Every structure is written in C-alpha cells, then in structure tokens.
Amino acid sequence: MFEIQPKNAAAYRQQTRRSTLIIALIFLALAMVLSTAAVALFGEPGGDNLRFNVGGVFVAVLLMVALMRSTFWTQEWMAPAVYGWQLKRSLMSITNVMHQVTAAVEKEDPSAMKLLRFYHLGLTQMHELDGNSSDHSQLTGEMDQHKARMEALGIATEQTRLDPAWIEAVKQASR
C-alpha cells in the first residue's frame, strides 16, 4: 500500500538530481572499466574492437540493474527517487483503469470516489515535486468538483493511501 508523504519539492529535486548523478557516474565508470578490460583481454591491437566496447557497456548495464535492485534501492540517498518512482507507478496503476474509475465515479461508487481522490492528490504532489505547475492548473476545477461531491456523499476527502483493493473493486464492478 503506497502512502503520499509530505515532501519539500526543492529538496526533493536536489536529492533526486544528486542520486541521478551518482548512478550516472557509477555507470560511466563501470562502462569504461569493463569496455577497457574487454578490449585488453579479447581485442586485437589496432583492430576493430567495437564489439568488445559494446559488450563492456552491455555488461555495465546489466551490472547496474543488479546493483540497483540489490544495493542502491535501499540506500538513504536513493529514498527520494524511490518515492517518486513509487508515486508515479501508483498513479499509473490508476491511469490504466481510469475509464473504469470514471464510470464508477458517475455511479457514486465509494471505492472509485476514493481512488479518483487519491489520484488527484498524487498527481498534485507529482506536479509539485517535478516543478510542473502548468499541468496542475488544468486539473484544479475537476479536483474541486470531485472533492465537493465526496463531501456531499459523506466520504472522507483525505485519501493519501492507495488501497489496491479499491482498484480491484473498480475492476470487478465494471465486469
């Protein structure tokens, strides 16, 4: 279950830039070392060693994927980037069933109403974290209208947790 947490947008952007730079530098170092080692071990002096250079870069990509999954993902310096990734993934899981969500919202389905409210809150935070205020202004009217509708139905509007059961309920209701 994903939960929206308050974040300072400027600090978030600074921290994610830093973690991106760290990952990029590690990848570059790995790619250079592995490409050089592949050419030194298997290449021909003065020959065409492109395949060994490409092979070294490919192995560096595989190694970075393994490092990301096994080591970097749990590091404190990666926490803001991981949070952003999880937020976007949560929003995408709703986007994938948005036509079902909007149909269920029209029928005043409580799960769909909560799901759409979480989506609005998550999208608002994503726009703030990414520094994308222009997209947010387009949603304000829809968000306010949906919030008022929830209040009128007596449904709590502070939906900061994404309950996967809501998505399943919406999918089941549309069948």
Rank of each mutant, 00 (worst) to 15 (best):
L63R: 07
T36F: 10
Y12L: 00
F52G: 02
L63N: 05
T124D: 06
G46W: 01
M32K: 12
Y12M: 03
G43L: 08
E108N: 12
Q14F: 10
E108W: 00
F27C: 01
G131W: 08
L139M: 15
W85C: 03
L115T: 03
V65M: 14
F72V: 13
T95V: 06
M126I: 01
P45W: 09
S70W: 04
R18Y: 08
M32R: 11
L67M: 12
P45Y: 12
N49S: 04
A79D: 09
Q138I: 14
H136G: 07
A40G: 05
L34Q: 10
F72Q: 02
D130V: 07
A66K: 06
W77C: 09
N49L: 02
L116Y: 07
E108Q: 12
L129F: 13
M113D: 00
A11S: 11
Q100A: 11
F118D: 03
E76G: 12
M68E: 11
S137Q: 14
V105T: 08
L91W: 00
K107L: 07
H136T: 06
A9G: 11
A103H: 06
L25C: 13
H99D: 15
L21P: 03
L139N: 15
V54M: 14
Y119G: 05
V65T: 05
M78P: 09
M143S: 13
M64P: 06
M126E: 14
G47S: 09
Q138G: 09
A38E: 06
Y83N: 06
P45F: 10
N96I: 02
V105H: 01
T95Y: 08
R89Q: 15
L139F: 15
D144S: 14
D135A: 14
G122V: 01
L87W: 00
Y12C: 02
A11T: 10
R13W: 08
Q145H: 12
G122S: 04
L28E: 02
V57W: 07
A103P: 04
G43S: 07
L50H: 07
V39M: 13
L91K: 00
A66H: 06
R69P: 00
S111M: 01
S90I: 00
E128S: 15
G131L: 10
S111P: 01
A38L: 14
I26M: 08
V101K: 03
S111R: 01
T95C: 08
E142A: 15
P80W: 01
A103N: 11
G47I: 02
D109H: 14
D135P: 01
L87F: 00
E108H: 05
L139A: 15
Q100Y: 03
Q15G: 08
A104Y: 03
D135N: 12
R69D: 07
G47C: 03
L21A: 15
D48Y: 04
L25K: 06
A9V: 09
